[in-house]
Design a protein around this nucleic acid. Structure first.
Lengths: 363, 363
DNA sequence: TCGATTTTTGTAATCGATTACATCTTGAGA
DNA sequence: TCTCAAGATGTAATCGATTACAAAAATCGA
């Protein structure tokens, strides 16, 4: 019961256990790491000693010796964004399953905080890094790569064949969003963009423009509003929308949040959704199903994305990369809900009416 | 340019730098840690060598030697919950400012994952722990406390005077919520509870019951629905609500998510909010302001809560705790928005009408 | 019972930094 | 120029585990 004469419990070392059990530190270490290499009797002796003084190995020392930390760093732009939160859950799950830990580095939209995380990685505190922010300065990226640090990019296709990519098919889904609206009979579209500097936003814009071209539409047939993937961007877009005389009948918002902001404001101004304007979002966050009317959107396979990303990182760490691992692009799923509908007298090509089964976007 | 003959860049050690600069490792270490103790000329020599071979100190080794990691662990029940996301931002900010890092341990609602995080802490990989989950098994808590690990509880008042508490005034705000509804003339109330096993939920329930008693109401005057702080709990409550013949006119949901779920379902059934039923939430998440109608709620000072919690942990780590630090309870702010209103012919005590200025709940 | 083999255990080097202490320089003042 | 304090640098111990290798003990067959 009493522990007099001992170090404070927080400072029990392997040597203390060894002394109590009457064996060497090597044996204690073995009991804990590979019990089958130690005779039963000795093992029991050691385990009893461990129990008695409440020993937990110091993993800082272990990490130093083993030259690895069993931990990965994930750099995200923003913790408050539910999209990242979901991806993180997937990552966490995959890593945990393999005995790895996770350090989350949130930039909180301050790009300069990145330096700290780069240092964390470079100083060997983690075994690998997953990048989810669109804009890692080239310098940092190169430094880390040269340091031989396993890395995975989950922001957007990075044109660097040393860094594997795990992303969703932003471009394809964007194109499909246009196609979907056009099929419903919409000929005049609105586009709520992401931040111009963001790689993902650029991908989605490219897809949108491809869709426009494929539908035989031109620049005159759509309005584009800049945004930042957030609620307020949708609000701003809606305000611009309301001022137009020739309003779009179909709006594609590149994030659910901005779609929700848009809908809220136009409805407050008496514009009905979907009767007067159809809106389709992007992300598939939970709240998209909570709002009224429920939001039609492309669902990102966030959880899966996270798991795949982490899986690739682990392969990278264990040097088991295979050809197919370098460029993974997951499909999105169209969730047809209540903010979109066909123009009654429109000249629709397809006859998909009302609620259909969600369909998968293929490459 | 060429690096032949060197270790791979990832393995540059302080000894390499020392050799190149022609000094001892001690000097290199000093240049990096306390430059003013080294002569200018030597310093330049060393810095040049550092630059030349791209040296970054191995912080695992440093942590071992210094017996501290400059990192704190935060255990949260769930990353996807925006409430925790906001608190985490506050924590992160405060820690970063003091040069500390942050490891987030998400339980993802699996309590058994906790063991892993306890081990992380016990194995000296972090200097302190912030607990945000309501149900840390006693055993684990005691183990960590006995290990002398600095800890802060941010879930609810833990009746352990060795662990400081940083929480919001759940009970008081709950009481105030009842008071508010009663003042608006509501005499028949609904209560959407949190999970019975959760400490915070228990606090809120206690506050609610206090409020009921203070208003001179009794058990017959309210209906209580169990929930889990989530959207679906609100949905379930609404379904129960709709079946009642004598429906409450004022509903207090102990989380915004459940309030939103409730509103969505009752409106779909033709019940108007706030005309037929007033709803007040709890949390003050962003989405509460995005839904239609905007949700009246008690806003938790999440960011501040996080900062304060981290600040207390840092004091604990640095052994600078002061009497007032052991029990911090932050007030909430009532955000009067569009889901609540006075019963027109009700017998209200106060005459607060429509939108007032948000008012602070004091102890 | 003896030696060979296998199994178990111990010794000591190692991971890569920091830092107390010792030693060597430098420069000011006599 | 010499002395001595202050300043700069080096030496080596240290943090706490793991593990290669050596040594000891157990096991087995003859």
């Amino acid at each position: 019961m009493s522990r007099k004469g001992w170090r404070s419990p927080k400072e029990v070392r392997i040597a203390d256990v060894a002394r109590i059990a009457g064996v060497s530190t090597a044996t204690v270490s073995r009991v804990l790491a590979s019990p089958d290499k130690v005779r039963q009797k000795t093992r029991d002796l050691v385990l009893e000693a461990v129990r008695q003084c409440g020993y937990t190995p110091n993993s800082v020392a272990r990490n130093l010796r083993k030259r690895r930390t069993m931990t990965a760093l994930v750099v995200v732009p923003n913790l408050a964004n539910p999209v990242f939160a979901q991806i993180l859950r997937g990552i966490d799950e995959e890593l945990t399953q393999s005995g790895y830990g996770l350090v989350i580095g949130s930039l909180d939209n301050c790009e300069d905080r990145e330096a700290r995380y780069v240092e964390l990685a470079l100083s060997r505190q983690v075994d690998g890094v997953i990048l989810m922010n669109g804009r890692i300065p080239e310098g940092n990226k190169r430094t880390m790569r040269e340091a031989g640090l396993p890395m995975v990019a989950m922001c957007a296709a990075i044109d660097d064949d040393k860094i594997p990519n795990v992303v969703v098919q932003d471009r394809e889904a964007s194109r499909a969003a246009v196609e979907y609206l056009v099929q419903l009979g919409h000929r005049r579209l609105g586009y709520i963009a992401g931040p111009p500097s963001n790689i993902i936003a650029a991908e989605r814009l490219a897809g949108f423009l491809e869709g426009i071209a494929e539908a035989g539409l031109s620049e005159k047939d759509f309005v584009k509003w800049d945004g930042r993937f957030v609620f307020s961007a949708g609000v701003a877009a809606a305000e611009a929308f309301l001022k137009l005389k020739d309003r779009p009948t179909g709006v594609y918002a590149t994030s659910d949040e901005s779609a929700i902001g848009f809908i809220k404001v136009v409805r407050a101004a008496g514009v009905r959704v979907p009767e007067d304007v159809s809106v389709i979002g992007f992300d598939g966050i939970e709240f998209a199903d909570y709002v009224e009317p429920t939001l039609t959107t492309f669902r990102q396979p966030l959880h899966d994305l996270g798991r795949k990303g982490a899986a690739v990182l682990l392969k990278m760490i264990h040097k088991q990369m295979q050809p197919g691992d370098w460029n993974i692009r997951l499909p999105l799923e169209l969730l047809e809900r209540d903010t979109t509908r066909a123009i009654p007298d429109g000249t629709r090509k397809a006859s998909r009416q009302g609620r259909g089964k969600p369909h998968l976007v293929s490459h």
